[in-house]
Amino acid sequence: MTHGSSIPGASIPGATFGERLAAAFASRGQLCVGIDPHSWLLTEWGLTDSAAGAETFGRSVVAAAVGRVGIVKPQVAFFERFGAAGFVALERVLADARAAGLLVIGDVKRGDLGTSVEAYADAWLTPGAPLEVDAITLAPYMGVASLQRPIDIAREHGKGLFLLAATSNPEAATVQQAVVANGPRAGLTVARAVLEDVAELNADDPRGGAGFGSIGVVLGATLTLANFGINIALAPPTRQTPVLAPGFGHQGGNIMDLTSIYGEYAEGVIVSESRSVLSQGPDRLAAAIERRATEVGAVRG
């Protein structure tokens, strides 16, 4: 594995997010490193629990990720807790990641409608914005159609979205396993309905090719997806739905089970890990990322 500073194809002008994700996978594999400056991690790293500590932490993770993985995922809540100074720190972390050619998924988990959700998309997906990332996570529980403006903005700028469908936290099961009562998705679970809506959006995207779509879903690695009404033997036949997969590593998901967990979706799975590598500390972080990236690559062949 070479440790160049950029991902071939990741910054092609006019490319869709799906195309850039495919380039990242081809160049650096499917591992995504989380940037989660928990207070306890900052302490273990010998940093202050402050915006300055979070900035040092985040920029160090980016530096260790370059050339070893193609994707990073900052959890913005850990920066937001420091207020304005935390957002300044996050902006600097994101600037480093963009300069390095990494794909950045902003784990923002916003969920709103109308002009409010449009403003979130403007903040995170507009080229040149201080908080610009390549994709964001969104909560679709006011209806996937309520996210139409972020969908439009993402398509316009070659950005991506990941909609929560089946998440690893047990509290979510009551909602995500509930059955839709009416409409075109009647009889499906909420999780399956979100997945179907996303597959339809990708199929209808005039800019997409036959590879990855630019809208994905979040499906936790610690779940039995059949319990959420999701048949992993059935993937979209023409355009793959990307899957952001939290839960590997510290939360108990085993990378050796990638194919058995995700079935036909495994090719498009972003293997997201945070604490399992971040807890190795600043001196061992780069080696931990490289080791884990190699393990994930071995599973995918």
Rank of each mutant, 00 (worst) to 15 (best):
S279Q: 10
V108F: 13
P237M: 09
A129Y: 07
L225V: 04
N169S: 11
D49N: 14
N231E: 14
F212Y: 11
L113K: 09
T2W: 08
A77W: 09
G128F: 07
G301N: 13
L234H: 09
V217T: 13
S168Q: 04
T238D: 09
F162E: 00
G229Q: 08
A26Y: 01
F79E: 03
W45Y: 07
A235W: 00
S11C: 05
L258N: 06
E132G: 04
N227Q: 14
I255N: 02
E19Q: 15
E19N: 08
G160F: 01
S260G: 04
L225H: 15
A85Y: 11
N254V: 13
Y262G: 05
W124S: 00
K159H: 05
L131F: 12
T16N: 06
R110D: 08
D36Y: 01
S272N: 15
A266W: 01
F162A: 07
A166K: 06
G128T: 11
T222D: 10
D107P: 00
G83Q: 07
W124D: 00
L90K: 02
R291M: 14
A298S: 13
L94A: 07
S27D: 15
V69T: 15
G209V: 05
G220A: 05
V198Q: 05
I215K: 02
A51Y: 15
P236R: 06
A203C: 02
A186L: 01
L278I: 01
F78P: 00
W45R: 12
V218G: 05
L31F: 02
Q280A: 14
E80Q: 15
V69W: 10
I35Y: 05
G252V: 05
R92I: 15
A26M: 07
G301P: 02
G143Y: 07
D205V: 05
Q30H: 15
W124V: 00
S168R: 07
I255A: 03
A85T: 06
G183R: 01
S146T: 13
V108Y: 10
D107Y: 04
S146D: 09
Q148N: 13
S60G: 10
T222H: 07
R291P: 01
P184I: 14
V133P: 00
G29R: 07
E91N: 14
A181N: 07
A23I: 03
R275T: 00
V108G: 03
P13K: 10
L219N: 11
R20L: 11
T43S: 13
L163S: 05
G209Y: 09
P184R: 08
Q251A: 13
V217N: 09
A199Y: 05
V61T: 02
P74K: 14
P37T: 12
I255V: 12
T259N: 15
S274Y: 00
H3Q: 12
R185Y: 11
F17C: 09
K109Y: 02
D197V: 06
F228V: 10
I289S: 11
V194I: 13
D122C: 12
Y265P: 04
H38T: 03
G268T: 01
S116V: 15
A203Q: 12
